[in-house]
Design a protein around this nucleic acid. Sequence first.
DNA 1: TGTACATCAGTGAACGCGCGTTCACTGATGTAC
DNA 2: TGTACATCAGTGAACGCGCGTTCACTGATGTAC
Lengths: 196, 196
Amino acid sequence: MRYDSSHKDQTRDRILGEAAAAIRQHGTRGVSVAQLMANAGLTHGGFYAHFGSKDELVAEAILRAFDDSRALSISRIEGKPPAEGLAMLIDGYLSDRARDMPERACPIPSLAGEVARMGPRARERFEEGLTRLRGRIAGLLVPLGHDAAAAEGLAGSLLAEMIGAMTVARALPDAAASSAVLADARARVKARAGVA
Amino acid sequence: MRYDSSHKDQTRDRILGEAAAAIRQHGTRGVSVAQLMANAGLTHGGFYAHFGSKDELVAEAILRAFDDSRALSISRIEGKPPAEGLAMLIDGYLSDRARDMPERACPIPSLAGEVARMGPRARERFEEGLTRLRGRIAGLLVPLGHDAAAAEGLAGSLLAEMIGAMTVARALPDAAASSAVLADARARVKARAGVA
DNA sequence: TGTACATCAGTGAACGCGCGTTCACTGATGTAC
DNA sequence: TGTACATCAGTGAACGCGCGTTCACTGATGTAC
């Protein structure tokens, strides 16, 4: 079973990708190492050839989750003018689809509660992803007439409302009420961003 | 060990109160039945005389957490005029103190992520508490000049931003950055509420 | 008033289970000769 | 070119542990007589 030199890196990447999806969907405590490895087509024993512990994997998977959802969002908005791009980012973030597919969506609503109870390593990765996302929103606000500081502040506020609305929408038991929360939040956040 | 007729109810209430605090602090998976009973001064075996299962307890404890944090908030605001009361509610909700004492604060930022993955019973209790809190904020907005529907809509939006800001503040590894997020959110939410 | 009994909230040992982690082993393939 | 050996990603049994849950038991006190 000796493989070429890039094989191990590819396997590690596959485990990380599965973890990034699974922890967003089931929470960090809702996925076992064995299940994760099975998702990646492997057996659990090999896990420790790639990661020192489950905690270490989780910390890395948080950043990977930010990367994946960012890539997805960027691919949809690419080439659009700022106002349209920002409106699409907000609509995408707060879509029913994003609510129903947390494994592909922004990790903040699904994981922030748990991250608050985790060690510094996971929290630093979380902060890194969060800062980048806020910076991306701010970057779309600047060409709309805000100076850099105002754009960062407004971006933080808009992101907070989006996080809160998605968090609530995912917890509500009634699908119609949940969709209403998202629709209202989309309208309000876009209005506040000046891209309604 | 036979006790008077109200004793069992009192014990149940004590377990529920401990659970409401513990799940906000450590998450529902972060507290064991044995630890919970020890907090209430009992041994784990007696648990099932009061609750059918841990899941059942968690569902009830969610509503209890909303009740506790509402009582705390009401006691601070009681008798104030609406504008001042609303400003105090926002400042209290987004205080460093609330961030550092999740066991006494609003359960939404600490528990919503987990609730989204739980059964209908827990989610219904969560919705009940959330609806009541939004209604309370709306009730303070009406005397400030909003009609009932507008007040409900704005209350939902303000609450979403507060939830998102607290969620983020709790997850950030740096205390100063976390406090800055809260201070900014306090100013912005009060401004949007018209009570700056 | 005094005694025997019934009650039942709470105790603590025990269960089966899934978890994170360890480790001796496998076996396909690159390398040395 | 052909053969023997070294490598090492991945395997799967096993571990110790804490969990939720069960259950036979305890013993202080209310009640019946």
